[in-house]
Design a protein around this nucleic acid. Structure first.
Lengths: 262, 262
DNA sequence: CGTGAGTTTGATACCCCTCAATAAAGGTGG
DNA sequence: CCACCTTTATTGAGGGGTATCAAACTCACG
């Protein structure tokens, strides 16, 4: 019952953005922020664009004349280092915004990780629009706060010096992402390659592979397809994710008390 | 001619926020976003608060009933891991906003790194205010984008697996921070302890110490006070910061061609 | 001048990166 | 549908960088 990325949504009523509430309570679930009317009005200035798997959407430093709003598919935001390796700053999903600019230039490059459908909204039109509609602006603020929290979480993840902990946190992130979207929280779908995961986690792809195997060997997850992982023991995953350095000497192999699958 | 953190600003006209432009060009300099009138109106609902060096401002999970705007001093935003170690997500400076909430709770804890003066703005009043003033909202959007870029830069930094590169990037961040503020770009002032730097860079404080020493030994920086560093060779600093893994085998010891201090 | 927090320096262990080879999966054309 | 190739993923061996533990040191402050 996973939402596949290559199928079109039933009916697109216009741009849509979702975020976890700032001050209200939503139980970790992302709420749709725009009203139908706002979406309709935005679709007047927006245009639909499609990208094939692996297609470059824009490069770092390109003129930033539009922002994008994902309808379906997954996008990676990244930078290329002088030695050609790339570092992924974020994965972006449906109802996300991307196209952050600084002084009129995109700060990151973006590529489609899967086939992608998105709205393209010219900033020229958007800016005037924002200044008029205070309610719309407020929604954008909520969404930006959401993205800010995500970026902070990512930095938090990267602060860990334990490969296993990083991968565990990554799986948790995916869990939360899917849960917030109303999908299954146990059956994780990984739209990106191991290499992408490695670039996101700041480690080698071999280390990612080994860590995933270790998690499987310990019975914390089970590996179906290469792109799908099932979480068997959420408690242990959480325990691993909490590790900062290299401890965990006590064998918590399969302690029934720890198996709080709740 | 550094701005010390424990002195009061000449005259506080009200809350102030600054950010690098989104679509315009400002040469990397942070511009003041609020008009005098907006600042005056905000100061009606804001109150001045002061914190001593090391004081806790709020904890992770506390009810988020206010956001803060720094007038003077430096704040660290962090989380505490189960094993009591802390991970710093951001350092916050004058004209910055902090107090990000999720579902009514602060997502990070914050502590004063130096003596701090700040405006405290209750969210109840703020939210109503934002919904009325579209221009003010737009400024908040700009500031959030700024913070988002900073968080991304931090994550980018943490992706490096080279201690020297991380410290080099950290110094570059401080340089840009001071330059954007109009202060000296060579004489860096570090308001935080080595331990804080380590928690921010995701490494041990010993590794920070060693990396700083290495930079000094190579003549890239010179160490004055423990809290002050002078950048001697910006070109080499940049070269080191660009490293992702562990390369740099060729001795670029003091190549005159590299010394582009410009 | 003594105290203690903050910092530096040293020795050792170990995790992870690197390089290299193998294996599996996905795509294409015959 | 299968052979073929390319891409992606896994597994192994070895070396290096950084964490960790431990001790000396500096500085601010009473």
């Amino acid at each position: 019952m996973l939402i596949r990325d290559d199928e079109d949504p039933p009916a697109a009523h216009g741009p849509a953005i979702a975020a976890v509430a700032l001050w209200g309570a939503s139980g970790g679930r992302r709420a749709q922020l725009l009203t139908d009317e706002q979406r309709a009005r935005l679709s007047v200035i927006a245009s639909i664009v499609r990208f094939k798997n692996g297609a470059q959407i824009y490069r770092e430093g390109d003129r930033a004349d539009a922002i994008f709003n994902i309808v379906s598919g997954v996008v990676k935001s990244y930078r290329v280092l002088p030695d050609k390796t790339e570092r992924i700053g974020a994965f972006l999903f449906p109802d996300d915004l991307f196209g952050l600019a600084e002084e009129g230039r995109y700060v990151n490059a973006t590529k489609a990780v899967t086939a992608v459908t998105a709205y393209r909204i010219p900033v020229a039109a958007l800016e005037g629009w924002l200044r008029k509609d205070a309610a719309l602006e407020f929604h954008v603020i909520c969404k930006l706060c959401h993205e800010l929290r995500e970026a902070q979480r990512h930095a938090f993840l990267l602060g860990s010096r334990n490969a296993l902990a990083r991968v565990a946190m990554f799986f948790q992130l995916l869990q939360q992402h899917q849960a917030a979207r109303g999908e299954s929280a146990e059956d994780l779908h990984l739209p990106m390659t191991r290499s992408d995961v490695a670039d996101y986690l700041g480690m080698s792809l071999e280390a990612v592979s080994r860590s995933v195997r270790t998690l499987a060997d310990r019975g914390i997850v089970s590996l179906g397809n290469r792109r799908s992982v099932k979480v068997l023991n959420r408690g242990q995953l959480e325990a691993l994710a909490a590790l900062s350095g290299r401890e965990e000497k006590d064998d918590c192999s399969t302690d029934p008390l720890m198996s709080s699958n709740d």
